[in-house]
Each structure stands twice: as structure tokens, then as C-alpha cells.
């Protein structure tokens, strides 16, 4: 089952890896010119994103240092979002998409326990995302060395691990909604709403007291606030992400085991 899911995913995985790598290469290679003209580029960045928009982009602190640039341009918004979209699309292939297209009906009549079916396909999702994460990490590291960013490998790896965990969490959210309802649009919508509100809460919402407590519900809080690029692996925060993922995956298994398929 796992091998089959991985084989089915291979084309998508190749494209996503290639896409994210291309993004990393293009954006990170600009760093060379940023470092040479720090004032200009910081200024441009500040002008381009005034006030709240700047908050939204993570504040652009120390844009001209390697870690700052990497955080603002790569790990703040774009790469996590690309990963989350990739994870959600792959997760929808586990239950909701085959259920809507009708291919799941034959699969659930096979001599495979439904709980095992969900667990194995989820495991394939984990491995798929891990593959994309490893490939893109290697490229990120290579480019950072090439343009002499001066960020240690373990810091980049720590940030990348966070991206992987956040994407896996949202992928598992999609799986759980799909496993419980069999509806792809609903699963994607839940992920979308959670991503957007979660992200807003930890960026713009940080200064608004009334909603500041919501950050505890935002996966991004456990990802970016630990500042992995500066301080290394935030073990506690990442464990929270993992635990939440495990609870969601278990919910998916139980929900799918209980319900009618394809009605």
C-alpha cells in the first residue's frame, strides 16, 4: 500500500521538488546583490511593504544578514505556503479525492483493514513530504553556500524541519477532514481558513491584544516564533506540532473506520 501510494505520488513529488528548488535558487541567489547594497534593498523592501504589510511579511528585520534574508524571503511565507499546498493536495489523494471520483469503493472492499488503509496512506504522505523536504533542503544548503550566506547547516536544517512539520500538520488536517466527510473541497477549505487565520494571528495579530491568545491555535506560532534560523531547533515547539499531527491522524483513522464510503 505504501509503495503503491509513493509510486502514484512520484510525478507530483518530482514537480513539487523541482518547483520549490527553483524558487529557492532564484530567491536565494539574489542575496549576493542584497549584501552588496544593503541600504538599497532594505529600503526597497521597506517601501514596498508599508506598515501592516511589513508585519505580514515577518517584519524584514536584519534583511541584509544571511539569516535575516533567508527568514524573510524563504522561510517566512513562501516556502511554508508551497509546502502546505503540496501537502494538502497529496493528503486529498488519500481519501477524499478517490472517494469523490469513485475509485475508493473498490479499494475499501479489498482485504485490507480500513484503519490500516488510512495509516499506510498517511505514512506514504509523511515519506513523500520528507522526500520533498530533503531534496529542497539540499538545494537550499547548496545555494546558501554558493552565495556565501553564512548560515550554518544545522540552522537551515532546523528551519526546514519546521516547514516540513507545519506542512505535515496541515496535510493531516486535510486528511482528517477528508476521512471524516469524504469531501475534497471541504478539506481544502478547512486547511485554507486555518492557514490564513493562523498566519495573520502570528503576524499582524501579534500586536492586537484581543486576538493575541489565538496564537496558541496557530501552527505558525510553533514554527516561526522559535526562530530556528537564529537559535536552532526549537524542540518543544516542534514536539507540539508533531503531537497535534498524531492526534489528527488518529482522528482520521477512527473517523474513516466508522462511516459509510461514497454516499
Amino acid at each position: 500500500m505504501i509503495a503503491k501510494s509513493l509510486r502514484d505520488n512520484r510525478r507530483a513529488l518530482a514537480w513539487w521538488s523541482a518547483g520549490i528548488c527553483a524558487f529557492l535558487a532564484v530567491y536565494m541567489s539574489v542575496y549576493g546583490s542584497v549584501r552588496e547594497n544593503p541600504e538599497t534593498y532594505s529600503g526597497i523592501a521597506m517601501d514596498k511593504f508599508p506598515g501592516p504589510l511589513k508585519d505580514l511579511m515577518g517584519g524584514f528585520q536584519d534583511f541584509q544578514t544571511g539569516a535575516g534574508y533567508l527568514q524573510s524571503v524563504v522561510y517566512q511565507l513562501f516556502v511554508p505556503m508551497l509546502f502546505i499546498v503540496c501537502a494538502t493536495l497529496l493528503a486529498n489523494r488519500i481519501i477524499a479525492q478517490p472517494e469523490e471520483s469513485g475509485t475508493l469503493e473498490l479499494v475499501v472492499t479489498l482485504p485490507v483493514d480500513r484503519r490500516r488503509l488510512v495509516v499506510e496512506r498517511w505514512a506514504a504522505l509523511v515519506l513523500s513530504l520528507l522526500a520533498v523536504a530533503c531534496v529542497t533542503l539540499a538545494v537550499a544548503w547548496a545555494v546558501s553556500v554558493a552565495v556565501d550566506m553564512g548560515v550554518a547547516f544545522d540552522r537551515i536544517a532546523a528551519a526546514h524541519t519546521g516547514v516540513f512539520l507545519v506542512a505535515l500538520l496541515f496535510g493531516t488536517v486535510a486528511l482528517t477532514v477528508g476521512a471524516a466527510t469524504g469531501r475534497k473541497m471541504l478539506a481544502s477549505a478547512v486547511v485554507g481558513v486555518w492557514v490564513v487565520t493562523g498566519y495573520l494571528v502570528v503576524t499582524i495579530g501579534r500586536s492586537v491584544d484581543a486576538i493575541a491568545w489565538l496564537k496558541w491555535l496557530s501552527p505558525f506560532h510553533y514554527y516561526a516564533e522559535g526562530r530556528p534560523l537564529y537559535d536552532g531547533l526549537p524542540v518543544g515547539d516542534y514536539l507540539v506540532l508533531l503531537a497535534a499531527t498524531a492526534v489528527l491522524a488518529l482522528t482520521a483513522v477512527l473517523a474513516f473506520d466508522r462511516r459509510d464510503v461514497g454516499v
Binding site: E105, V108, T109, D260, V261, G262, V263
Partner: peptide
């Protein structure tokens, strides 16, 4: 038929 195959309960 779906009841016989545990597709639905």
C-alpha cells in the same frame, strides 16, 4: 451490495 461488502454500514 455495498452492505454485503462493508462499504456502507
Amino acid at each position: 451490495i455495498r452492505l454485503l461488502l462493508d462499504v456502507i454500514r
